[in-house]
Design a binder for these strands. Sequence first.
DNA 1: ATATATTTTTAGACAAGACTAAAAATAATT
DNA 2: AATTATTTTTAGTCTTGTCTAAAAATATAT
Lengths: 222, 222
Amino acid sequence: MPTKLSTAEENYLKAIYKQAEKGGAPVNTNAIARELSTAAASVSDMLRKLSAKGLIAYQKYYGATLLDEGNRIATKLIRRHRLWESFLVATLSFGWEEVHDLAEELEHIDSDLLIDRLDQFLGYPKFDPHGDPIPDRQGRYTLRVQHLLSEMPIQQHLTVVGVSNHDPEFLHLLKDLNIQLGTRLDIVQKFEFDDSLKVLIEEHTSVIISNRISSQLYVRPA
Amino acid sequence: MPTKLSTAEENYLKAIYKQAEKGGAPVNTNAIARELSTAAASVSDMLRKLSAKGLIAYQKYYGATLLDEGNRIATKLIRRHRLWESFLVATLSFGWEEVHDLAEELEHIDSDLLIDRLDQFLGYPKFDPHGDPIPDRQGRYTLRVQHLLSEMPIQQHLTVVGVSNHDPEFLHLLKDLNIQLGTRLDIVQKFEFDDSLKVLIEEHTSVIISNRISSQLYVRPA
DNA sequence: ATATATTTTTAGACAAGACTAAAAATAATT
DNA sequence: AATTATTTTTAGTCTTGTCTAAAAATATAT
C-alpha cells in the first residue's frame, strides 16, 4: 500500500494540504496550479492519478480533498520540511530567510529513521524557525497561542511567536527591525488612519510598523 | 556555463569518475552500465548528451573520459557524499554500514553554502566513516597512508584506516569482529595455505581473519 | 433565461530517461 | 584471414511530468 511516491506527486499532496488549510476543502484546480506555478492542465492530470492511487478524493469540475493516506503523507512532508529548517538554522547557522528552498529539497529524502534521528538531535523542537508547529511522528501538532499583532489592543509584554509570510524579503525586513522569534514587544500607540502601530522592541528601540507588517506577525501575551 | 544538471547526469559523471579511478581511462560503456545497474543502450544515449555539454570526451566504440568541468562536478559530488556520510555517523549516530544510500540522495542537493557549513560544523574532517578522503572546496584530497592488511608482514601496532568494500554486509561483519576505523591490530601469525592471518584486536581478542577480509582492509603502521 | 466569462478538462506534443531488439563495430579464436 | 563472440550503438517504444490550444462544464451577469 505505501508505494513510493515521486517528488512531483509529493509536491501536489503538499499543495493540496496547504490550500485546504487556508481555503478549506475542496481545493480547486487553479489554487493548486498557482501554488505550484504550473499549468492547470497539469494539475487535472495529476489529480486523476492521485485519485487512482487512493490518496485524494477528486470529482471533476469540483475539487480535491486529501484522504487519510494522502493526509498522512502530506503531514510527514511538513514534518520533514520543518525539522530540516530547524536544523539549518539551529545547527548550520542559516538565517530564517534562507532555509525554505533547501528544506524543500531535503524533505523529499525518504527515511523515517533519518528524520527521527534529526528530531532527536535537535531535542524534539515543537516549532520551526518561523514559529510553525512541527508535527510529531504521529502527525500531531502542538497548538501555538497566536494573535496577529495588528489585532492586539495597546498592550505591553508581547512575544513574537511566528510569521504568516515566509517570503525572504519580508523576513529580511524583520531582521533589519531586530525582530525575530522570541523578540519582546510593547504596543505603545495605535494610529487609526493607516492602522500603523508604534512599537517598542525589546524595551529598547521604538519604531512605527505598518499594518502590512503587523498583520503578518503572530504574537502572544507575556 | 555551469548549467544545472539532473540527478541522472550527475550519477553518470560519478560513475565515470569511479570507473576511471579503478580501471583507468577511457571508461567503456559496459562498466558504466554495471556501475549504475542500467542498460548499455541508456549509457550510450547519456554519453552523447554529456559529451554535447562538454563534460566528457567521448568517442563511439571507444569510451569516455571526464573533461575538466566533468571532473570538477564529480569531485564535488564525492565531497558532498562523504561529508553527508560523516554527518550521519558523527552527528546522527548512524552505523558506517547504513549511510551510503542516504548520502547518495543527499549529495544531489545543490548548495555550496550548505555543504561548506556542514563541513565547518563537522570540523573539516579529512576522511569519511569508511576512511575515504574528503576533497576540500578546491577538490584537493588528503592522501591516506594505506596498505592492505593482507600484504603486511607479521607486525605489531597497526591501525585500521579504511576499507575498500562498502558493502553493508561486509561492514557489518567487521563490526561483529570489533573492527572499525581506528582499531589497533597486531599480526601475530600468517598461514600460507589459505593466506589467513591470526590477528590480535586492540590487545584484546585474538581472531583468524580470512584473506577475503584482510585484502579489503587498509591499515597503516603505528 | 440567455449570453458571457471563467474554470476545468481533454487532446495532442514534447523532453528526459529508461527499456528491448536489432544492427553495426570491435575483439577474440581457430 | 575468416569466423565467432562480445561490445556498443541505433531504432523504436514506454512512462512521467510538463506544456499549449481547444472543448466542455460551471459560474456570473445582463
